[in-house]
Amino acid sequence: ETQAGIKEEIRRQEFLLNSLHRDLQGGIKDLSKEERLWEVQRILTALKRKLR
């Protein structure tokens, strides 16, 4: 995994995270989306740690 590859994956995950946040802010309670949001946040945290 290169730095560029990790950064690209971070961009993808952040896009997905923002999309999930928008969907959930629409007021629709969706447990699967909430679980996915937490999963994406965990992935992002792990990726950012790899960059250090």
Rank of each mutant, 00 (worst) to 15 (best):
residue 1 E to D: 12
residue 1 E to C: 15
residue 1 E to W: 11
residue 1 E to P: 06
residue 1 E to N: 10
residue 2 T to C: 14
residue 2 T to E: 11
residue 2 T to H: 08
residue 2 T to M: 09
residue 2 T to W: 14
residue 2 T to Q: 09
residue 2 T to L: 08
residue 3 Q to V: 15
residue 3 Q to D: 06
residue 3 Q to I: 15
residue 3 Q to N: 07
residue 3 Q to L: 15
residue 4 A to Y: 08
residue 4 A to T: 06
residue 4 A to F: 07
residue 4 A to V: 08
residue 4 A to Q: 10
residue 4 A to M: 07
residue 4 A to P: 05
residue 4 A to R: 10
residue 5 G to P: 03
residue 5 G to L: 14
residue 5 G to C: 15
residue 5 G to V: 10
residue 5 G to F: 14
residue 5 G to W: 15
residue 5 G to D: 13
residue 5 G to Q: 15
residue 5 G to Y: 14
residue 6 I to Q: 01
residue 6 I to W: 10
residue 6 I to T: 02
residue 6 I to R: 00
residue 6 I to N: 01
residue 6 I to V: 03
residue 6 I to G: 00
residue 7 K to Q: 12
residue 7 K to I: 14
residue 7 K to V: 10
residue 7 K to M: 15
residue 7 K to W: 15
residue 7 K to L: 14
residue 7 K to R: 14
residue 7 K to T: 05
residue 7 K to H: 08
residue 8 E to H: 04
residue 8 E to K: 09
residue 8 E to I: 07
residue 8 E to G: 04
residue 8 E to M: 07
residue 9 E to Y: 04
residue 9 E to Q: 08
residue 9 E to V: 04
residue 9 E to M: 10
residue 9 E to T: 03
residue 9 E to W: 06
residue 9 E to K: 05
residue 9 E to I: 03
residue 10 I to C: 04
residue 10 I to V: 02
residue 10 I to P: 00
residue 10 I to A: 00
residue 10 I to Q: 01
residue 10 I to H: 00
residue 11 R to I: 07
residue 11 R to V: 06
residue 11 R to E: 06
residue 11 R to T: 05
residue 11 R to S: 04
residue 11 R to G: 03
residue 11 R to Q: 05
residue 12 R to Q: 07
residue 12 R to M: 06
residue 12 R to Y: 08
residue 12 R to P: 00
residue 12 R to L: 13
residue 12 R to G: 01
residue 12 R to A: 05
residue 12 R to D: 03
residue 13 Q to W: 15
residue 13 Q to Y: 15
residue 13 Q to T: 12
residue 13 Q to F: 15
residue 13 Q to R: 02
residue 13 Q to D: 02
residue 13 Q to G: 03
residue 13 Q to V: 15
residue 14 E to P: 00
residue 14 E to R: 06
residue 14 E to Y: 14
residue 14 E to A: 04
residue 14 E to G: 02
residue 14 E to S: 04
residue 15 F to N: 14
residue 15 F to G: 09
residue 15 F to A: 15
residue 15 F to C: 15
residue 15 F to T: 13
residue 16 L to I: 14
residue 16 L to M: 03
residue 16 L to W: 04
residue 16 L to K: 03
residue 16 L to N: 02
residue 16 L to F: 04
residue 16 L to H: 02
residue 16 L to D: 02
residue 17 L to M: 06
residue 17 L to Y: 11
residue 17 L to G: 01
residue 17 L to E: 05
residue 17 L to Q: 03
residue 17 L to N: 02
residue 18 N to L: 12
residue 18 N to A: 15
residue 18 N to E: 15
residue 18 N to V: 12
residue 18 N to P: 00
residue 19 S to H: 05
residue 19 S to Y: 06
residue 19 S to N: 07
residue 19 S to D: 07
residue 19 S to L: 13
residue 19 S to Q: 14
residue 19 S to K: 11
residue 20 L to Q: 00
residue 20 L to A: 01
residue 20 L to R: 00
residue 20 L to N: 00
residue 20 L to K: 00
residue 20 L to F: 02
residue 20 L to S: 00
residue 21 H to M: 15
residue 21 H to R: 15
residue 21 H to E: 12
residue 21 H to A: 12
residue 21 H to T: 14
residue 21 H to P: 01
residue 22 R to Q: 10
residue 22 R to E: 08
residue 22 R to A: 12
residue 22 R to Y: 06
residue 22 R to I: 07
residue 22 R to S: 07
residue 22 R to N: 09
residue 22 R to G: 05
residue 22 R to F: 07
residue 22 R to V: 08
residue 23 D to Y: 08
residue 23 D to K: 04
residue 23 D to E: 14
residue 23 D to R: 03
residue 23 D to H: 05
residue 23 D to N: 04
residue 23 D to V: 06
residue 23 D to W: 08
residue 23 D to G: 05
residue 24 L to I: 07
residue 24 L to F: 04
residue 24 L to T: 04
residue 24 L to Q: 03
residue 24 L to S: 03
residue 25 Q to E: 11
residue 25 Q to K: 12
residue 25 Q to N: 07
residue 25 Q to Y: 06
residue 25 Q to A: 12
residue 25 Q to D: 08
residue 25 Q to I: 08
residue 25 Q to L: 10
residue 26 G to V: 07
residue 26 G to E: 09
residue 26 G to F: 09
residue 26 G to Q: 09
residue 27 G to L: 07
residue 27 G to I: 06
residue 28 I to L: 10
residue 28 I to S: 09
residue 28 I to Y: 06
residue 28 I to H: 08
residue 28 I to R: 06
residue 28 I to P: 11
residue 29 K to Y: 13
residue 29 K to S: 08
residue 29 K to F: 15
residue 29 K to M: 08
residue 29 K to L: 09
residue 29 K to Q: 10
residue 30 D to F: 02
residue 30 D to R: 01
residue 30 D to V: 03
residue 30 D to H: 05
residue 30 D to P: 02
residue 30 D to Q: 03
residue 31 L to A: 14
residue 31 L to M: 07
residue 31 L to P: 14
residue 31 L to K: 13
residue 31 L to I: 12
residue 31 L to N: 10
residue 31 L to V: 13
residue 31 L to H: 12
residue 31 L to E: 12
residue 32 S to C: 12
residue 32 S to R: 12
residue 32 S to E: 14
residue 32 S to V: 13
residue 32 S to D: 13
residue 32 S to A: 14
residue 32 S to L: 13
residue 32 S to Q: 14
residue 33 K to F: 10
residue 33 K to S: 05
residue 33 K to G: 04
residue 33 K to Y: 10
residue 33 K to D: 05
residue 33 K to A: 07
residue 33 K to M: 11
residue 34 E to M: 15
residue 34 E to P: 02
residue 34 E to W: 15
residue 34 E to L: 15
residue 34 E to V: 14
residue 34 E to H: 08
residue 34 E to A: 08
residue 35 E to N: 09
residue 35 E to Y: 12
residue 35 E to I: 11
residue 35 E to G: 04
residue 36 R to K: 11
residue 36 R to I: 06
residue 36 R to C: 05
residue 36 R to D: 05
residue 36 R to P: 01
residue 37 L to G: 01
residue 37 L to D: 00
residue 37 L to Q: 02
residue 37 L to F: 12
residue 37 L to V: 07
residue 37 L to N: 01
residue 38 W to E: 10
residue 38 W to R: 14
residue 38 W to L: 14
residue 38 W to V: 12
residue 39 E to R: 04
residue 39 E to N: 04
residue 39 E to L: 04
residue 39 E to Y: 03
residue 39 E to H: 05
residue 39 E to M: 06
residue 39 E to V: 06
residue 39 E to W: 06
residue 40 V to N: 01
residue 40 V to T: 05
residue 40 V to R: 01
residue 40 V to I: 13
residue 40 V to A: 06
residue 41 Q to V: 14
residue 41 Q to A: 07
residue 41 Q to N: 05
residue 42 R to S: 06
residue 42 R to N: 06
residue 42 R to L: 07
residue 42 R to A: 08
residue 42 R to G: 04
residue 42 R to C: 09
residue 42 R to I: 05
residue 42 R to Q: 11
residue 43 I to P: 00
residue 43 I to R: 09
residue 43 I to Y: 10
residue 43 I to L: 13
residue 43 I to D: 02
residue 44 L to T: 00
residue 44 L to F: 01
residue 44 L to A: 00
residue 44 L to N: 00
residue 44 L to Y: 01
residue 45 T to F: 08
residue 45 T to H: 11
residue 45 T to V: 12
residue 45 T to G: 06
residue 45 T to Q: 13
residue 45 T to P: 00
residue 45 T to I: 13
residue 46 A to R: 07
residue 46 A to P: 00
residue 46 A to E: 14
residue 46 A to T: 05
residue 46 A to Y: 08
residue 46 A to D: 12
residue 47 L to P: 00
residue 47 L to R: 00
residue 47 L to M: 12
residue 47 L to G: 00
residue 47 L to H: 00
residue 47 L to A: 00
residue 48 K to S: 02
residue 48 K to D: 01
residue 48 K to V: 05
residue 48 K to G: 02
residue 48 K to L: 11
residue 48 K to R: 14
residue 49 R to A: 13
residue 49 R to Y: 05
residue 49 R to H: 08
residue 49 R to Q: 13
residue 49 R to M: 10
residue 49 R to I: 12
residue 49 R to E: 13
residue 50 K to T: 04
residue 50 K to E: 07
residue 50 K to Q: 13
residue 50 K to D: 02
residue 51 L to T: 01
residue 51 L to M: 04
residue 51 L to R: 01
residue 51 L to K: 01
residue 51 L to V: 02
residue 52 R to I: 13
residue 52 R to P: 03
residue 52 R to L: 15
residue 52 R to F: 10
residue 52 R to G: 08
